[in-house]
Structure formats: structure tokens, C-alpha cells
């Protein structure tokens, strides 16, 4: 048998993986190796596979992912800092048939938007909150976030986060899991192929639960910030596994009973 060539393999019938059609052609502004891009693509894949484009309204935050609306081809609203869950609440209540999600970073969701996060979850709004936790304010240049680990250096904790002065990092997923309004709370990652595939499954579950009107779905993605952490992307992923995952362990925190 003749040796199979590269050109024999790259035929449409052999296609195994291609980025989602719902990703636009715009080059993402994220730094090399940033988990935001990966998280966007997983979300886009689910929206495409579940045929949700026509009924999706996404709410973007203030932070690095403020321009997310340039990258996924669905209708978007750009919220004020921390307020995405309030916008999402109104969208879902006024148009209950739409698929509504917010996409928020740690500063947005766990600092300035804490009240909106807690109360939206407590009311059990039928929305998906996608929370990207990389323990730092990336957009403004690497300041301490509410989720910055103890001892972790940032531009506003240059000697490391001192718990006695700056308080402890906050575990938002654990907090919202205690509220009766949330139906599904899980913590995932995007640094490995396995992690990405698990996140995809989690988002698909959130779609199902939202269709079934079961309450708020909260998916935390523990992610990296190579620029803010001052590491290469590969180093940042390793550091995340060795440090972030210890404090923010991956896995389901709250799952609804099967129907």
C-alpha cells in the first residue's frame, strides 16, 4: 500500500476538529495563551451544537472580556462593571424563551458586582453565569482581585496578598452554591484538552437546566493570566495547577436531582 500523504488526509470527509462557525473572523485581543479565548470557543461550540444562535442573548462584563461581542456571532449587551446579572435578569424575565448568559471576570463578579451576583443567584434567575477566575485584574494592568491567592503578588499587592490587611480570597462558587436559587454550580478549567471537554459538558448541562427553568447555573472557570502573573503561558498553566487548583478545587459543587 502506498504511503498516505498529508494531502490525502486533509479532506473535508476527514475533518475532526474546526473552530466553531459561531466564532467570528476577528482576531481576539487577548494575550498569548489566555484562557479567555479557549472559554469563548467552548461556549461558541455549545451554542452552535445546540442551535442556540437565534435565541441567545449574551451579556459581557467590564474587564478583559469586555469586547467578547466581537468574537461570538450572537446578540450581545455590554453591561456596566459588575452589573451583567441585573441585565440578564431583565432579559430573561422579559423574554423567557431566550437563552441568556453572562460572562464575567473575578473583579466584575466577585468585587464590584457581588450584590448583583448573589441576588441574581438567590432569585434563581434562569440564566447561566460563566465566571472566569484568574485571580487578577488583567485589563487594568494586574491589580489584586478578590480571588487573588494569599501571598500572590500583584501591582497592588507588591509584597504578596497579606490576609491580615487585604482579607482572604473569596470562593464565589461555594457561596452561591449555598443559595437555594442556584441549581448547578461547578468549577472547571480550560488549560488541558480534558478540562475543555469537561467544561463543554458543563455548559451543555447548563443549557438543559435553563431550558427546564430549574434556576441559576453558575460555572466557574479557573483560568490563567500569563501577562498579569508575569509568566509564559505554559508556566502560568503549571502555576495554576499547582496553586490555584488547591484553593479552587475543580469539580461539581452542586448538581440538581435528575428529573
Amino acid at each position: 500500500m502506498a504511503e498516505i500523504t498529508f494531502n490525502d488526509i486533509i479532506k473535508p470527509e476527514n475533518l475532526t476538529y474546526k473552530k466553531s462557525k459561531l466564532m467570528t473572523d476577528n482576531v481576539m485581543h487577548y494575550c498569548p495563551g489566555c484562557g479567555h479565548g479557549t472559554a469563548h470557543q467552548v461556549l461558541a461550540e455549545v451554542l452552535e451544537e445546540e442551535n442556540l444562535q437565534e435565541r441567545t442573548v449574551g451579556i459581557t462584563p467590564v474587564g478583559c472580556s469586555v469586547l467578547m461581542y466581537n468574537y461570538i456571532d450572537v446578540d450581545f449587551q455590554e453591561a456596566a462593571h459588575g452589573r451583567a446579572p441585573a441585565l440578564a435578569t431583565a432579559v430573561k424575565r422579559l423574554m423567557p424563551d431566550k437563552f441568556v448568559f453572562t460572562y464575567q471576570g473575578d473583579g466584575d463578579l466577585a468585587a464590584i458586582g457581588t450584590a448583583e451576583t448573589i441576588h441574581t443567584c438567590n432569585r434563581g434567575e434562569n440564566i447561566l453565569i460563566l465566571f472566569i477566575n484568574n485571580g487578577i485584574y488583567g485589563m487594568t494592568g494586574g491589580q489584586m482581585a478578590p480571588t487573588t491567592l494569599e501571598g500572590m503578588k500583584s501591582s497592588t499587592s507588591p509584597y504578596g496578598r497579606d490576609i491580615s490587611m487585604m482579607g482572604s480570597p473569596i470562593k464565589m462558587a461555594d457561596i452561591v452554591a449555598m443559595l437555594p436559587g442556584t441549581c448547578y454550580v461547578t468549577r472547571q478549567s480550560v488549560n488541558t484538552a480534558g478540562g475543555v471537554r469537561k467544561l463543554k459538558k458543563a455548559i451543555k448541562k447548563a443549557v438543559q437546566y435553563q431550558n427546564e427553568k430549574r434556576g441559576t447555573c453558575f460555572i466557574e472557570v479557573v483560568s490563567n493570566c500569563p501577562s498579569g502573573w508575569k509568566m509564559t503561558p505554559v508556566e502560568s498553566n503549571k502555576w495554576m495547577e499547582e496553586n490555584m487548583f488547591l484553593f479552587y478545587p475543580l469539580g461539581d459543587i452542586k448538581v440538581p436531582a435528575e428529573k
Binding site: 498516505i4 489566555c34 484538552a193
Partner: peptide, 27 residues
């Protein structure tokens, strides 16, 4: 290139979606 098994792991973790993967069964 001869070692590629078409597992897609690279494409799945690529933050910028620049990788497309193909695979065939042979033999």
C-alpha cells in the same frame, strides 16, 4: 507530522482557534 494521531487536543486548547484537525483510519 508523521506522528500526528488526530486527537485534536492541540486544537481544543488553542485559545485562538487557529488549528484544524483531520484524521483517517488506514489499513
Amino acid at each position: 507530522p508523521e506522528t500526528c494521531i488526530g486527537c485534536s487536543n492541540c486544537a481544543v486548547v488553542c485559545p485562538d482557534g487557529v488549528i484544524t484537525v483531520y484524521k483517517v483510519k488506514i489499513g
